[in-house]
Design a binder for these strands. Sequence first.
DNA 1: CAGTGAGCGAGCTTCCGCTTGACTT
Length: 666
Amino acid sequence: MAKNLVIVESPAKAKTIEGYLGKDFVVKSSFGHVRDLAKKGEAIDIANDFAPRYEVSPDKKQVVADLKKLVKVAETVWLATDEDREGEAISWHLYETLGLDKKETKRITFNEITKAAVLKAIDSPREINKELVDAQQARRILDRLVGFELSPVLWRKVRPSLSAGRVQSVAVKLIVEREKEIEAFKGDFFYKVNGIFTAENGRFKAEVSQQLKSEKEVESILESCKGANFKVSDVAMKPAIKKPVAPFTTSTLQQEASLKLGFSVSRTMSVAQRLYEAGHITYMRTDSVNLSETALDAAQNEIEKAYGKEFSNRTKYTTKDTGAQEAHEAIRPSDFGKHSINGESEQERLYDLIWKRAISSQMSDAKLERTTIKVNAAGVDETFQAKGEVIKFEGFLKVYLESNLDDEDEDETDSGLLPAVSKGDLLDANEIKITQRFSRPPARYVEASLVKKLESLGIGRPSTYAPTITTIQKRGYVEKPDREGEERTYSQWKLSNDKIERKELTEVTGREKNKLAPTDIGVVVTDFLSEHFVTIMDYNFTAKIEKEFDEIAKGLMDWTKMLKEFYTPFHTNVEDTLENSERATGERELGIDPASGRKIIARIGRFGPMIQIGDEQVDGEKPQFASLRTNQSINSISLEEALELFQFPKNPVSYTHLTLPTIYSV
DNA sequence: CAGTGAGCGAGCTTCCGCTTGACTT
């Protein structure tokens, strides 16, 4: 029998570590937390310094039983869970649950899974850090208090079965606020001027940087360009460098997999999980961009072998986010020598992305030369500009270029090669084109951009980004409606061979898929919470309490005191809201029913968004009701559309708003 | 599922963060 029992969080990690340690060690996994606050009854004794009541989670009963057996025969138990707040708490819960003996228990940590790191950890054990554990207990209890006191307020004031929480409610708020910005957006248009010019060595496209505001300006420019003699008025060349970016964290992996592979956040995580279990990559839930020394060596080796010494540039990245806990390495291939793997297509593609990102992070800067050509003509007031970029040395661009979430389907800027020209060269203007363009409303979030935003606010953790997105959709706060988009017309003028031609063209705008938009319920709940629970809904709330958790972890603050200071005003606020606030229905008056002269309102009813004609209190007659259809919302439905809902009462229409909890199916 | 908008009054829902399978479709 093994003398030593090592407990880590993940079974795949256990397997790896067992290989590093000798015959005397058996390594097992706890599968994450084994205990949590009681699900039912009083889990927190608020009057008694928030004393928590923990119980072994139902799905961990077997794990705990198995570990107990191994503890009995082991001489020493090594608690080797992660080096962060949650990891420390897991060790403490194991210690308590397994009834460990302090003399025979050792706490060890390592934030990279390498033989050297593990052996070093075994050489320098410590005790469980109770202050760090207390910080976790404060975090856990605060989240329970917020979630389990706020949700029932919603049941009473909005609709049953709804939920609220420190993370999810703010995630929904981001989406609601973005939608309000879009609604408030006033579209504008302008005119953009382009020219295609031919020089001795080739053609290039150049544009005028200022935007024209009126057709009058358009026409006067075109007139001035007629027969004008264009020439190169300036050529400027500037060297530039592009730097690679850090290897993946969970959040950046989710973003890139979304952009480059079209994966949803949860799909990325499940594919990564399989890569991890197969031993192809390091752990996929991490907020660290750090690479171990062994990994740096391996990457450098591989780059020098595959591309040459000049492509290697060993770089240590550091995490800027203050909330990061850095219990693991960045996400990287276990073996940099494997440029690709064989497996299911999505695993191959995600691995390819991870390999390229990690390798490129250790490669040299790309050297570029940026060229700007200015084109002018006598009699033409505007300056045309062409910008080009030439790669002088590829560096990391040989393997990888990061995508950008913000500039999808933006007009492509011609940044390729420009022909060699010199100042004073004469040019032929093949075509001057002026196109009407439109300003764009703020973009709706996609899953990955929401994760990016949450991470930048320090809200949520690598292990919760994907589940949070699932939750807010399951609760019916947000959805991803398919939008067909609308056709719009725009004008375009072309000047060639001294002839001006004007055309009216059409394009489709606003076509969308997979964009997150709030439902009526999402809007009503967010407005309600924002009005009554300003503190919780503040984007800085998490950051603020994280600072206090850090104080607790450092032993500078007492965790029960921190909770008390938070809870006392919060609870008063809850009571006050329950007693004094109106039901939140998102009611909006649409107008008067022409047939009956009664008032028409849109609001959230017991079964979701609906239209109501009349009010029994006011006109003494029973009101009429109709549910909104899919893609209709309280905020945008018109009086006409509302009346239409009463025209065909027997028509079967889809009522997807009515994704209701089972209680109502009775 | 059907297609409501409650004069029954019992008991239910809910949080965040750490982990994987065991379930269906």
